[in-house]
């Protein structure tokens, strides 16, 4: 894409110093027109006792931002040896030129060698090492958490016990024999079913008390 032409080393004219000229030409130009434009420029430079050291044609490039309603530009870079008096004239000429979108002239340090950069190559970055995830997001682990034992029902059973005992004590005053029978039955049966059985037994006892001959209201 880019071509670098290096001029044969010649004796540098006294008082001349190295400059770098970068041009952005409008992308509407054809190739023949570009060559014509650039040749005009180099002729103008050589007329003014300047010398083209290197020339580097970058070609079409996307601009970082819009320039005079153009998204693209044609880049050209020169390294020149120019007499100081001609510099102002050259700047003026480039400013007036319609096809030149932008231009810049820089003074280079003495003994500067032109280096070419491949700008379109991607920037190398270090690859990130992916760390293993600490917690797996599978559903299995979540379901285990929900199956944790529940403590609440035990308390209920204890409360029920106390209630039943109180009732028994009341009953014991009147009919001690029945109480003993009920107590034996409870021990044999499992704890959870206590409440239901008690209710049914209590009903029976109450009926017996109310329906009994000895009971008087």
């Amino acid at each position: 894409m880019t071509k670098v032409k290096t001029a044969t080393p010649q004796e540098v004219g006294a008082g001349d110093s190295l400059y770098e000229l970068m041009l952005i030409l409008s992308p509407d130009l054809r190739e023949s027109e570009i060559k014509k434009k650039l040749k005009e420029l180099t002729d103008m430079i050589e007329k003014a006792d300047g010398r083209v050291v290197t020339e580097d044609f970058w070609g079409r490039r996307n601009l970082a931002y819009r320039l005079k309603r153009h998204n693209e530009g044609i880049y050209m870079v020169y390294n020149l040896e120019l007499p100081g008096a001609f510099l102002k004239e050259l700047k003026q000429h480039l400013r007036i030129e319609k096809e030149v979108l932008r231009s810049m002239i820089i003074k280079l340090p003495a003994g500067h060698a032109y280096t070419k950069y491949d700008l379109d190559a991607p920037v190398e970055l270090k690859e990130r090492k992916e760390k293993p995830k600490k917690y797996s997001t599978k559903n299995e682990n979540i379901s285990i958490k929900h199956n944790a034992p529940i403590i609440a029902p035990k308390k209920k059973a204890e409360e029920v016990k106390e209630e039943t005992e109180e009732v028994k004590e009341e009953m014991s005053a009147e009919e001690p024999e029945k109480k003993e029978k009920a107590g034996k039955d409870k021990k044999a049966e499992p704890k959870r079913e206590e409440k239901e059985i008690d209710e049914s037994e209590l009903d029976k006892k109450l009926d017996a008390i109310i329906g009994g001959e000895d009971f008087n209201l």
Binding site: I24, L63, A64, Y65, L67, L119
Partner: peptide
């Protein structure tokens, strides 16, 4: 300088 010659943007558009 690179910004001036539209090689690098001034602002992230």
């Amino acid at each position: 300088r690179a910004r001036e010659m539209a090689l690098i943007p001034f602002v992230n558009k």
